[in-house]
């Protein structure tokens, strides 16, 4: 800041040399960090737009070499990938609706001070965060309910996050003034009516945060599908990705021609880069717009839980 022009005000002390050096070091550190996070991502994107031969020869670094969309064409013509994408969309939409509904259904009553038993219930919920039943016993429950190998197995067993309940409860308790409850009670509105027409309209930011958290969870998780699903037609995208990207089982191969199978192999390799981009794109596109809400939600839970 140039304090020289305003000589009447107490002159701003120019930062000492050591502080300016310190700031430069900090900035450099952050630039390195930025590069460390960004470069792998750029490399993946650049490779996905390069020709299979260039990627295999290791000629791609941070810019596409021999620009080509072959990887994307191949990825988008892979029936498993398309089925996975479709399934993941279903899981994300249905799962989010179910999860948000159930979360509000428990968080709202728990936010009411006059709701008898709220502390006991909250304690029991939090206890599940500290001590879990474990993989096998939970699997047995899902099995006994006949949910194995059905879409329900991905939608129900992890439908409610206790953390999300805490966030929602805190939000309700802090944003809806007691007077509103009194007023709506005087108007003869019952509990559900009050929730629907008074509380929820005031809670759109909360609903957005919850929906985002659950959508991203559903889109990114693969564990439940790994444990509960055997039918490939039900696999979410992440399982398909795992099979192709990590287990190296790229769909059907069946060519006899050596040159062609060579190309097939190269294509299978570059396909992985394209798949990474395709699968992460939806989340990364909405991310800059929602990061703020997301953070707010996390902080509400963290500060006030």
């Amino acid at each position: 800041m140039s304090a020289t022009t305003l000589s009447k005000k107490p002159p701003k002390v120019r930062e000492p040399f050591s502080d300016r050096m310190f700031l430069i070091v900090v900035t450099l550190m952050l630039v390195v960090l930025l590069a460390l996070v960004l470069l792998p991502l750029i490399y993946i994107v650049a490779s996905s737009f390069s020709s299979p031969a260039a990627v295999n020869a290791g000629r791609v670094s941070l810019w596409p070499v021999e620009f080509s969309l072959e990887a994307y064409r191949s990825a988008l013509s892979n029936s498993e990938v398309l089925q996975g994408y479709y399934n993941s969309l279903i899981y994300a939409v249905a799962g989010t609706i179910i999860s948000v509904t159930l979360t509000v259904a428990i968080a709202y009553p728990l936010s009411r001070k006059t709701f008898y038993g709220r502390n006991v219930i909250m304690t029991l919920l939090i206890f599940t965060m500290l001590f879990s039943g474990g993989l096998i016993p939970t699997y047995m429950v899902v099995h006994d309910l006949g949910m194995l190998d059905t879409r329900w197995a991905l939608l129900i067993p992890n439908a409610i996050g206790v953390w999300q309940v805490i966030i929602a409860r805190t939000f309700f308790a802090n944003t809806v003034p007691d007077e509103l409850y009194e007023a709506s009670q005087l108007d003869g509105a019952g509990g559900l009516r009050t929730l629907w027409s008074v509380v929820l309209p005031l809670s759109k930011p909360l609903l957005a945060v919850l929906a985002l958290m659950y959508t991203i969870y559903q889109w990114n998780t693969y564990f439940d599908a790994l444990v509960y699903l055997k039918d490939p037609d039900l696999f979410p995208l992440q399982i398909v990705l795992r099979n192709i990207l990590i287990l190296n089982t790229p769909g059907r191969a069946g060519s006899v021609d050596l040159a062609q199978s060579m190309h097939q192999m190269q294509l299978a390799n570059v396909l992985r880069y394209a798949l990474i981009v395709i699968s992460s794109l939806p989340v990364l596109i909405i991310y800059p717009f929602v990061a703020r809400f997301f953070t707010k939600g996390v902080l509400v839970g963290a500060v006030k839980g």
């Binding site: 960090l33 993946i44 991203i216 889109w219 990114n220 990705l241 990590i246 990474i276 989340v283």
Partner: peptide
Amino acid sequence: VTYAPYFISTVVVVSI
């Protein structure tokens, strides 16, 4: 930028 990887799935991070 540093916040972004949090939104990428475990499968993709491991793949990368």
